[in-house]
Write a protein that binds this DNA or RNA. Structure first.
Lengths: 194, 194
DNA sequence: TTCTTTATTGACTCGTCAATCAATAAAAAG
DNA sequence: CTTTTTATTGATTGACGAGTCAATAAAGAA
């Protein structure tokens, strides 16, 4: 029963299924068949819409990044003042939608994928630049030329705590991760790191 | 020409070849054949000595961790005073032997492996505990109960910067990574993060 | 010298998986 | 009503790779 306009629906379903499947498997060794099955279609259809496995992964990566971007944007919308905006960025990075085990596993695997795929690499670079730029925008007015180093440390700590969370087996608290980065932010704003 | 006592030699060669091969491939999709070939033997022999692919990976992981551990121990040996010891730990974490692209790729892939392999997971937990414990040992006398949070942040930043380095294509400076963590250390010791 | 142990490999099995393709079906266009 | 376009899949192909095994060879032991 070929209803027209299936393409976007199928694509979205495949992207979601990819993330779920990576989360369930814990690595990128997920087959097109298993993804397609989870999305309720045949593997042939997945190939039909995406062309190949790599492109399915890339689409999932873009989706994850765009969800994160939206989260940050929404958080920034409600924040006023540089300090509040910085806290919003940090909070969004550890928001529950990015902090699900599935999503973390997906991120982690993207880092691996980025080592071989130019496209994946580029997407991660974009993410890093955006995070850095967001931080700089509000750090610079507060601490001037010290913003550069502070942004590098805050961004690094976010990534590091995210990585640790990916390793943790239990569904640990994102509140703790957030608190750690906020503590660092405090230190940076008080100017004790140069 | 079966000279006796080949086992340790072959095992060591396979471990080294595994790290090289992962570094060259950029992911864990390296075949036993390619590893064995790089190590100058048949894949059958690799299976003979290790039993299976997983165990080859685990051995490579143990080796990487033990090299890192030795590096830290050596650095601590020559350092006197809590502050110097902390700097030694940080320096060792970014020492050139761990900061080679091959080794970084291997670490990254171990994080992925740890999501499915209990053994791999355990090894990484041991690493994290050791790092944390090393940091705490010297932080506690300096800043007392604030040591806990400080150790989490420093360890997190080390991991995060390591991750970023794994993503960077160019052979960037470990001096910068070290400097960032040292700046954080400064801030923590001055007590501006609580 | 004969037997056992260690070293070593080529050839093979078995499974898996990405990608293709021909075939089916239903909507829409003409 | 015919043709084209979109949707969909089962079956198949072709490649690759982990693990096994029998066979070969050289030491050392008896």
């Amino acid at each position: 029963m070929p209803k027209l306009g299936m393409e976007p629906i199928r694509r979205a379903a495949l992207v979601k299924a990819t993330i779920d499947e990576i989360g369930a498997a814990g690595n990128l060794d997920v087959t097109v068949s298993s993804i397609a099955k989870r999305a309720g279609m045949s593997s042939a259809l997945a190939h039909h819409y995406f062309g190949g496995k790599d492109q399915i992964f890339l689409a999932a990566m873009r989706h994850t990044l765009s969800v994160y971007g939206a989260e940050v944007r929404a958080a920034l919308m409600t924040a006023t003042g540089h300090r509040a905006r910085l806290e919003a960025i940090i909070g969004a990075s550890f928001a529950s939608s990015n902090f699900q085990p599935d999503v973390i596993a997906t991120w982690l695997n993207f880092y691996v994928l980025a080592q071989t795929s130019t496209d994946a690499h580029h997407l991660l670079v974009v993410y890093q630049r955006r995070l850095r730029s967001n931080l700089m925008y509000d750090l610079q007015p507060l601490i001037g030329q010290r913003a550069e180093g502070a942004a590098a440390r805050i961004a690094g700590l976010i990534d590091g705590l995210y990585l640790r969370q990916g390793l943790a087996r239990d569904v640990a608290d994102q509140s703790d991760a957030t608190a750690q980065v906020l503590a660092l932010l405090d230190a940076e704003l008080q100017g004790r790191a140069q």
